[in-house]
Amino acid sequence: MTLNRLTHLQALEAESIEVLREVAASFERPVMMYSIGKDSSVLLHLARKAFYPSKIPFPLLHVDTTFKFKEMIAFRDQTAEDYGFDLIRHTNADGVRDGINPFDHGSSRYTDIMKTQALRQALNAGRYDAAIGGARRDEEKSRAKERVFSHRNASHAWDPKNQRPELWRVFNTRLNPGESMRVFPISNWTELDVWTYIYAENIPIVPLYFAKPRPVVERSGTLIMVDDDRLPLAPGETPRLETVRFRTLGCYPLTGAIRSEAADLPSIIMEMQASRTSEREGRLIDSDSVGSMEKKKQEGYF
């Protein structure tokens, strides 16, 4: 069969592979962020393709806040075993020592310490000069502004008003000592592209994306899954089983479930097409204030 034109997904895939290879060829100590979600699953799949038959030539880093869904952790460990990549797990030990949690300290302080600070610790400890992430430009307004190769100063901060020009596919990968690069290979993918790719390539994802009866409590209109007994229940509050699923995954106390019957990929794609809300609606940490993502990114968040 003679191929004359790449499909939309084939073109996106090839672009992402090119970016991943450029990272491997240009940096001394790259690392790939692995958040276990669907975007990370796609990123991992692309990295396997980019370097085949070699193994992925850099480690994967998971910042474990200790409040991830149990199914995420199980999926992470199984995936690492199946594909044999080098997995680095990092938890902010100071935060654990101080008992930082989203209930007593608020979502924004918890996120800062257990995610942003933890990430900076891990990046400093590994002396990584490039960190690959699965962020997409269609997710959020400040992400829509970011370069594929996004420069960070020595304190991991993004200067959105002074980004390097990025022409064609010629990426400036050069850094001064202490500086680093955040690299986003799937910048130009949409949420729909991600799901259709997962479907077309049969990529394994965490089962939490599929609808199933799960124990939830409803707080201010958000369904929170009771994943373990650390979630404090208000007097009289009892978890009830509801058929729900998740559009995005993170820390279980901060991630809203949606009521859904979509138990397989075709149903999820259909459901998403009919949806009138964005995927980040379920993320409690992004909606604190207008521009909150930009602020977090300037502080070093992905």
Partner: peptide
């Protein structure tokens, strides 16, 4: 407001950097 994603852009009502939309 849909595309001006940076705080400085919204404050000043101008576009500083490229925004990609799909």
């Amino acid at each position: 407001l849909l595309v001006d994603g940076l705080a400085a852009e919204r404050e000043q009502g101008i576009t500083i950097d490229v925004a990609y939309r799909f």
